[in-house]
Amino acid sequence: MARYRGPVTKIARRFGEPIFGPDSAYEKRQYPPGQHGFARKRGKKSEYAVQLAEKQKAKYTYGILERQFRTMFEKASRAKGITGEVLLQYCESRLDNVVFRMGLAPTRRAARQIVGHRHIVVNGDVVNIPSFQVKPGDQISVREKSKSLEVIQSSVASRSNDYEWIEFNDSTLTGTFVSTPQREMIPENIKEQLIVELYSK
């Protein structure tokens, strides 16, 4: 199962926001990585550099590697609707992201691991594929024997965000993917149009 295994704080500092979730190391050093940090003279970025950076940010945010992200973009470009918005909807519909949004894991990385270790059930069947596309109406829950896991219990206890496209029951650890979120509902700071422009060249 391919996934990014490199440093996370360094990447977050590059983009100037904690895209991997709460990070105490990032909070202490909110400036670009490298020997000179703020002191380094950075010229104006080219149009291509800006577009590439936005694509990289989206990939790191959702934990998707290049080939898979490109495939998702091609699928989004063939679908009805605005390509950039559809792309983000595909990202939000990934099982690992839905598990994260429900509050069953503190980060998307943790959610990916929970799914990979067969702790999640979709419509009564165990699914261990993080990229599994959840559809409106699908019911996602924690396996009965996994409900006592400390990472899940502590995450649910501290969950603070509710999303209008997801219903979740804290007592049964069961949620429903009510509908595909519209762009204005998705809180991620991603300029998807730049990604579309990059791939359209």
Rank of each mutant, 00 (worst) to 15 (best):
P32W: 04
K57C: 06
L173M: 15
Q139T: 14
E197T: 09
E85I: 11
P181Y: 00
K10Q: 10
M102S: 09
T61K: 02
Q193E: 05
K201F: 07
A76H: 07
L194I: 02
R40N: 13
A2L: 13
F168V: 15
T71Q: 14
R94V: 03
I114M: 09
P130G: 11
G63D: 01
E164V: 08
S200A: 11
G84T: 11
F15V: 01
R3W: 07
Q51K: 10
V134D: 06
K44L: 04
K10A: 14
R67T: 14
R3H: 08
R13L: 00
Y90L: 08
Y163N: 04
P33D: 02
L88G: 13
P106G: 02
K147W: 04
K45R: 15
Q68W: 01
T9D: 01
Y26Q: 00
G175T: 13
G124L: 04
T172I: 03
V8C: 03
G21D: 00
E150W: 05
T172P: 03
I186P: 13
R13E: 11
H36L: 12
S46Q: 12
Y4L: 04
R118Q: 12
D170A: 11
V122Y: 06
I190R: 05
G81H: 14
H117Q: 12
N97S: 15
G175H: 01
S93H: 03
N189R: 01
G16C: 02
N97G: 14
A157G: 08
E167A: 14
E17Y: 00
